[in-house]
Nucleic acid binder design. Structure first.
Length: 235
DNA sequence: GCATTAACCACAG
DNA sequence: CTGTGGTTAATGC
């Protein structure tokens, strides 16, 4: 009997997953196994759509590795980028407690690995393991607070403040370096801060002329970070 | 009025 | 996909 259980556990790949989200760390072995038996790991290439706005979903999306944009097409048919997220990250939890329709799309920006996890199974785990629920709730709240700040910033700040914000965000949170190669387009940056690609181009060129950044096609090097932060603050 | 800001359009690398 | 120039509309001295 024990050996049979052991055998089953050894078949569970999730137990050895080296990219486990902090929330998963509080699951016990049988819970991990339940998760494992109800998930599918899928690799996406750059630009591939992971989930589409409007589609019915029975899964939650866990970004295991890679970079993803969360975007929504508004009533005027214009695309807005809600956020760009890096692994590890949990998405699609909202749909699970509402009408199960995706309110937004997810698209891979770089090659990405995601785990689709069955929503009903996740609900069982949330009911069963309060520490897990606590972790997930914390994640959802942090995510929402970020969204609030981003929303206020893009509505109230001027163009240059928004572009400065975007550069700092990419450097600090996404690429984790002040010298990085963009894997997103100017249009994406524009979508992120709610402006046009032309304005992003002009703002970047201006920053470059003023010696705040070094710009070379897709590579960006921040030369004067404190000034960039100042621009971000005063908007 | 005049200046500034930023969106939209068109065109070209 | 980007960069540039021209135009236009809104807003603030």
């Amino acid at each position: 009997m024990m050996s049979k259980i052991k055998k089953l556990m050894s078949d569970c790949k999730c137990i050895d997953c080296d990219n486990r989200f902090c929330a998963f760390a509080v699951l016990n072995d049988s819970e991990i196994k339940l998760l494992c038996n109800n998930h599918a790991e899928v690799k996406f290439k750059k630009k591939e759509i992971i989930i589409k706005q409007g589609a019915l979903t029975t899964n939650v999306v866990y970004i295991k590795s890679g970079l993803v944009k969360e975007h929504i097409t508004g009533p005027n048919k214009k695309e807005e980028i809600l956020q760009i997220v890096k692994s590890p990250f949990f998405l699609g939890i909202h749909a699970m407690f509402s009408d199960r329709i995706n309110q937004y799309s997810l698209t891979a920006i770089e090659d990405t690995t995601v785990c689709f996890i069955n929503s009903e199974i996740l609900k069982i785990l949330l009911r069963k393991n309060s520490e897990f629920t606590y972790q997930i709730l914390m994640h959802v709240c942090k995510d929402q607070i970020n969204n609030f700040h981003q929303c206020v910033n893009k509505v109230q700040k001027h163009l240059h403040g928004c572009v400065a914000d975007a550069i700092l965000y990419l450097a600090d949170n996404i690429y984790e370096s002040d010298h990085f190669k963009l894997s997103i387009t100017r249009s994406d940056i524009a979508g992120l801060i709610g402006t046009s690609r032309e304005c992003v181009s002009r703002a970047l060129a201006k920053f470059s002329h003023e010696g705040i950044i070094d710009l070379n096609n897709k590579t960006v090097k921040i030369l004067n970070k404190s000034l960039l932060q100042k621009i971000s603050e005063v908007g």
